[in-house]
């Protein structure tokens, strides 16, 4: 299926936004103004984008500690995300969540989740809501190769098959769970095959190839939306940065990272493909580059200048009523 010009520009906008957002946080993090842990998604943009392009605001995703990319791809407000990451008033979670807990229910973003394997059980719950209410809603769980080894993930996959839930499990294999390679920690040849053994269709795709991810995701989301139950996709794309910002990454060779930037950059791969096939113009992509750069500048500027929450905010929103 040929994707229209608008869809390709939308995809590029989302991917470029994620990249620029993450590259900028990588720089700003060194100023000491960003509190706590940040885990960057750069390198994996084609996965979040290829999947979220299939979804509506009323569909749900569950994300991981490395959740900025999923949030942006699902349509979360970038300035409000930046405010949240800086722990400021006006942040998407009022400064109470931070990088690892960005959520926006109106956009169907059920939350980044700082527990590896935390989201699959929650996501099948969102899928259960769609099933019980008889809507055609879909829920998507993003997990890494690390979470693919968690029992919660196995439980969620099995229950999704048993209850025939409208859910898609995305396994982003970025090569490492923290500082340990997936070749060591995943005791199977393929995460997709393991998912398949739970009784659902599963495929492996090159996660740096937007078109491959998009096609696989379209099929899986359609399957879910039409009542045919869960699917899984293993999408392989290495992360450009460490497990967390500040990670010296001694477990990776310098050669690996250099090669990755050269041959494993999904944005470069996307651009080369669409320019070669004359699907969109270079000018249109350049225009997006400029827009996104400006947007991220504004987001950082706004976040730096914003106020912190006050001590009054400490005690609010523990409960709806108590």
């Amino acid at each position: 299926m040929n994707l229209g010009n608008n869809i390709l520009l939308d995809a590029y906008h989302r991917m470029k936004s994620i990249r620029e957002f993450e590259e900028r946080i990588h720089v700003e993090n060194t100023t000491g103004e960003i509190p706590g842990f940040v885990h960057l998604y750069a390198g994996q943009e084609a996965v979040a984008t290829g999947v979220c392009l299939q979804l509506r605001d009323s569909d749900y995703i569950g994300s991981t500690h490395r959740g900025h990319g999923h949030s942006i791809a699902k349509g979360c407000d970038i300035k409000a995300m930046m405010l949240e990451i800086y722990g400021k008033k006006g942040g998407l979670c009022a400064g109470k969540g931070g990088s690892m807990h960005i959520a926006d229910f109106e956009k169907g973003m059920l939350g980044a989740n700082a527990i590896v394997g935390g989201n699959p059980p929650l996501v099948i719950g969102a899928a259960l809501t769609a099933k019980v209410k008889g809507t055609d809603g879909v829920a998507v769980s993003f997990s890494g190769d690390g979470a693919s080894n968690q029992g919660t993930t196995f439980e969620a996959m099995n229950m999704a098959v048993v209850l025939k839930l409208p859910v898609v499990f995305i396994f982003e294999n970025n090569g490492y769970g923290e500082g340990t390679g997936c070749d060591y920690a995943v005791g199977a040849d393929s995460i997709a095959k393991r998912a398949e053994s739970f009784g659902m269709p599963a495929v492996s795709v090159d996660g740096t190839d937007f078109f491959a991810v998009e096609a696989a995701a379209r099929e899986a989301v359609t399957r879910a939306r039409t009542g045919q139950g869960p699917s899984a996709i293993e999408a392989s794309a290495m992360r450009f940065y460490g497990h967390f910002e500040g990670d010296p990454q001694a477990y990776r060779s310098a050669d690996e990272l250099a090669e990755l930037r050269k041959t494993g950059d999904c944005l470069k791969i996307f651009r080369a493909r669409v320019e070669k096939d004359q699907l969109v113009t270079a000018d249109a992509l350049d225009q997006i580059d400029r827009e996104v750069a400006d947007l991220i500048d504004e987001a950082v500027d706004k976040a730096r200048k914003a106020d912190f929450p006050t001590s009054d905010d400490l005690l609010t929103d523990v409960y709806v009523s108590y």
Binding site: A126, E155, M159
Partner: peptide
């Protein structure tokens, strides 16, 4: 059976599904 749901013996999936369903519009 659409509202009284027998699950596998998978307590994390039960609790998580309840939380995810609660956050998206059911009262499990």
């Amino acid at each position: 059976a659409n509202r009284v749901i027998d699950t596998p013996i998978s307590e994390s999936a039960i609790m998580g599904a309840a939380a995810g369903a609660a956050a998206t519009g059911l009262r499990p």
